[in-house]
Amino acid sequence: MRTLEIIAIIFMLIATGVTFGLYQINFQGFTHLTNYSKTPAYDLSGTRLYSNGTLLLNVTRTAGPDTYGGFIVLVQILYPNGTVLYQWTGQQLGMLPQSDIINEFPLHPAKPIHIGNYGVGILAPLGQNFVVKLQVPFHINPGTYIVRVYDADGQYEAYGTEFQVTVTVS
């Protein structure tokens, strides 16, 4: 009987360990509870800006609901002091040709969304990593700039991280 009880306790500990482990690692449930499925978030690592005005906006959708959105409705290039150098609104982003958006994965591609001539923005499915080719219509002076995107909820921040990246034009 002793053996049976020891086996039962070992398996109880295994199952409970998996449950608690997944809870802590996936949601930090025992420390600072975080659910990454609540709000869309974007990572702009890999974004590049060139002096001829070409912006290769590299977006990874890193959080939010798995079945819907997010939608990027504003892309900004800012001076380090926060003044806007140039921006693209949802109207412009939604009217981009699909060929200007290069998706890493063939499934669930990011795409421009428009209703007739009304541009809405760029649909960014969860997990997709894509590059949007954008063109500023003038030369950009060497220096440091901030590239930022806004979600359709009006925010450029979620889970304590801003949807922006610092780029250098040489």
Binding site: A15, T19, N26, F27, N35, Y36, D66
Partner: peptide
């Protein structure tokens, strides 16, 4: 997928309850 779940930390609940029940 354990981190997914917009309503009730869903995938974690599925994985842990079904896993523990199946092991039982």
């Amino acid at each position: 997928a354990g981190w997914l779940g917009s309503t009730c930390v869903d995938e974690w609940q599925i994985a842990s309850v079904e896993g523990a029940a199946a092991l039982m």
